[in-house]
Design a protein around this nucleic acid. Sequence first.
DNA 1: AAAATTTAAATTGCACACAATTTAATTTAC
DNA 2: GTAAATTAAATTGTGTGCAATTTAAATTTT
Lengths: 141, 141
Amino acid sequence: MDKLSLKNQLCFKLYALSRHITSLYRPILEELDLTYPQYLVLLVLWEKNRISVKELGHHLMLDSGTLTPLLKRMESKDLIHRQRSMLDERVVEVSLKEGGTALKQKALCIPEHFTQSVTIDAQELKQFAATLSRLMDQIPE
Amino acid sequence: MDKLSLKNQLCFKLYALSRHITSLYRPILEELDLTYPQYLVLLVLWEKNRISVKELGHHLMLDSGTLTPLLKRMESKDLIHRQRSMLDERVVEVSLKEGGTALKQKALCIPEHFTQSVTIDAQELKQFAATLSRLMDQIPE
DNA sequence: AAAATTTAAATTGCACACAATTTAATTTAC
DNA sequence: GTAAATTAAATTGTGTGCAATTTAAATTTT
């Protein structure tokens, strides 16, 4: 087996599949005027209304270089609020605004869209998700 | 189960794992002065020395908007050659230059790096790769 | 064969990712 | 208690991704 063959590269398949599934989200999220990373930020905020940029970055595995401009765009769309913590001026806390809260109702149907578009045995998908979680858990920090 | 919980989102796990594994490649590829997508281009060219931008894009699932500037950067590093086809002036053909050919030797050891860094049952990984391939095959076009 | 259509790259513009550096605030050491 | 070290965001700069448009060449229609 040729290890340098594109077809044999697990990493390439992950990379391509990830981009493909993101592209399936795109038209749905476009109706909400959201990008996929912006949607991820909202997923976190819907669970925990107030969170620091650092914590958010920990959840999404993104740094401030990515998050700062992304959050500014979301702020300008009135989805979220950014404010320096009064206890620690270094920290910026992100919280939902009405716009961001309201989108949750519209987003509820999104996960359903994909159970349809994927033709795969439920048991196999479950096993796949389990391995994916196991691999994720090995990611340091 | 909360379907809008980040932890339950298969897509997020794919997205995060894909970026993480790419980040494992980064220090190795940096020694070769390559980015991950540039490495993918070389993987294709090492298998098929001469290929059009369109075909290359088909293999990597990337369009000319991504590939044109990427290939220009690779050309400026003397890794590849870009040339209009004489049979069809619309087509640009990409081929290896000495620099790109020479890197293959240095790249041979790269796949080994990762079998080590992943602690997972070989059978489970095999199953995972199989499902990944099945999902990939469902990608249209 | 000329006009209309299609095709392949390139271009433009926007939004991530991420390394590296900078800035400002807080802790820790001494 | 101040200097040094650490920390959290922001900034800077480069390289993707991708939608949308443009350009130029080839093909199809009429």
